[in-house]
Design a protein around this nucleic acid. Structure first.
Lengths: 340, 340
DNA sequence: AAATGCCATTAAATCGATTTATTTGACTAT
DNA sequence: ATAGTCAAATAAATCGATTTAATGGCATTT
């Protein structure tokens, strides 16, 4: 009852395994193998449900039909949703996904890249942490297809998919200003990543145009949520003059909501809120939080499309492309700053 | 600059690849290979950073060091969190994870199991849909380690990790009754899965003890959230006499919250809420939702511990174990039904 | 009739490791 | 002197596929 190999098939049919292999790989015509032989082999293979051992196949061909997907944290709803969509599309195209969470940790990411490399994944989809430039360039030098998303690396020239971060925060901040808010803080994780810098820049640009003073609070990321909530609480307690707060990522946003809840701050009468990323938490929070929604389907679709293209066309000649997607701005809660 | 193979190493050192292999696999002593030779090989291997090709290794040994993880939906926070924890523990023990979402779809799950099998995963962690019994029994027959979680399959005798579903809903329902609520509905997805049946039973048991009439609403699951929200809205509009609602899963819970929000129902004055699974959405929702919290870390820990045990001890003699974990009951919002 | 070309198929090499079986030389026991 | 033991290392088989190079048979060309 053990698994059949191609040799078993060949022996049973009194043909060579070469013939079986050619037939199974659709090269029967090319190799002009007799029509009835093809049918006989095909029939028997179907009958016993023989499947080639993919390890042996990968070893020989160098292809694994596996895509390595590295997100920041699979338990973050944004990344989970993207992973889910990419997974679906990949399966439909005959690819499997190995995924992992980088935690934005350069060392961990480096190990994971080596692990993927070792498993001979055919392509890489990465939300890269800073400091991983050399490793990715090394992948590229070896001809591996790599698509970055959510952010990119200035010194790495490969395809990437991003959203228009700068405009998104610029636009949202502008909106707050038009509503009459003047003391608008921007709270985010300390990070030099491109998307974070762009978001920050958008905020600054909008404030500059209005001549208001920017108030930026950078929180050190920590796995332990208490170490995020602590500094946040301190900050909000100290800056009572704020009339609006902009959260730069969904994680900061949910932590921020917890703090605001526990401090008994009223939204938006005490404080108006805007957060990056829109999902269940923000839609349900009462009163609702205005949010910038990333086009998750479009991101996943673009990423996998670009990668599949690179995988199918062994094209060294196509230069790398950057895809920038638009976000939606979902305004919720009262629309005007109440007059004091 | 291409990758080195064991032959390259052997040639360069003028030894046989057998020797290199023995040394690299820690069998030098057993094979009494000379001490200086061992050091010479070790040093060179470190120097050039040689890593054995894991495909070839897997092909020969039959082991892949990969664990297949099948959850219901990786974008569901409960499963995402579990997956994340399992992933961490697995990596620490030298295993990688290939994961996928079953959607509770038997056919899709069957295909995925075959895919895992084909990739020679060493062990399986599955939140199984109904109807997949035969496939899993077939895995077991072939000696594959399988651990189920979140639910189990009555006709499959293998290890599983669950929570005490029946007691959890019994206890929570009891609590509602003690608070003075009389018309308590239970809303859940239509499913014959063990955990769902147990939750329903707990609810029934509590109501029976009090002599109140159960009101159960089963929603047909659908990927399209609108097709869940629709029936939910209809149900809540029709049953104005309800004073409490119990959501049987987190997904039903979040959908339910959306409906309650859009209908303008006040919680808990109009309607008290209890939901299975506790996470950000419920903690932040204002007024907060009382929830049954699953011990996510303990679940992930138990699952991976059991599986690693099975992987390490090639023990056919250890009979399968069932682990039942306790839940936490997080009471939020007002504690008494207001007197009308 | 020998040489050439084409067909249909297959033997053998290959991918990169592990593992079994064998070799070689030194030393010991009979 | 001969067989037997042992240490140290290696040759060769193996895992299960793909792929290159080779084969024998037949028809056609010169």
């Amino acid at each position: 009852m053990k698994k059949l190999s191609i040799v078993d098939i060949a022996n049973h049919l009194n043909v060579s395994k070469t013939t079986v292999s050619f037939i199974l790989n659709g090269r029967a015509q090319e190799k002009r193998i007799g029509k009835e032989l093809v049918e006989r082999v095909q029939k028997f293979v179907d009958e016993v449900g023989y499947k080639p051992n993919s390890l042996a196949k990968s070893l020989r061909t160098g292809k694994s039909n596996i895509i390595g997907l590295m997100v920041e944290d699979i338990s973050n709803p944004f990344f989970a949703a993207i992973a889910r969509l990419i997974e679906d599309r990949a399966y439909k195209n005959g690819y499997k996904i190995i995924y992992c969470s980088t935690d934005n940790d350069t060392l961990k990411t480096r190990e994971l890249i080596n692990m993927f490399r070792d498993r001979h994944v055919d392509g890489y989809i990465i939300a890269p942490p800073e400091g991983i430039e050399d490793d990715i360039n090394s992948l590229l030098k070896d001809g591996m297809p790599v698509v970055l998303f959510d952010r990119h690396l200035p010194n790495v020239s490969t395809d990437f998919v991003e959203i228009d971060n700068l405009f998104s925060t610029y636009n949202a901040t502008k909106h707050l200003i038009q509503q009459g808010y003047k003391n608008i803080a921007f709270i985010t994780f300390a990070s030099g990543q491109t998307q974070m810098q762009a978001r920050l820049q958008g905020y600054h640009n909008a404030l500059n145009e209005s001549g208001y003073k920017p108030v930026v609070q950078e929180i050190i990321f920590n796995q332990n949520e208490d170490l995020i909530i602590g500094p946040l609480t301190t900050f909000l307690k100290k800056n009572k003059n704020l009339d609006a707060v902009f959260f730069g990522t969904n994680h900061v946003g949910t932590c921020g909501l917890k703090v605001i809840n526990s401090l008994g701050i009223k939204v938006p009468s005490d404080l108006a809120l805007v957060s990056f990323d829109d999902y269940d938490v923000f839609k349900l929070f009462s009163p609702p939080v205005t949010a910038i929604a990333q086009p998750i389907e479009a991101i996943a679709d673009s990423v996998i499309t670009v990668l599949l293209n690179k995988l199918n066309t062994s094209s060294q000649h196509i230069s790398s492309q950057s895809i920038i997607l638009k976000t939606d701005f979902n305004i919720r809660g009262s629309s005007k700053k109440p007059i004091n």
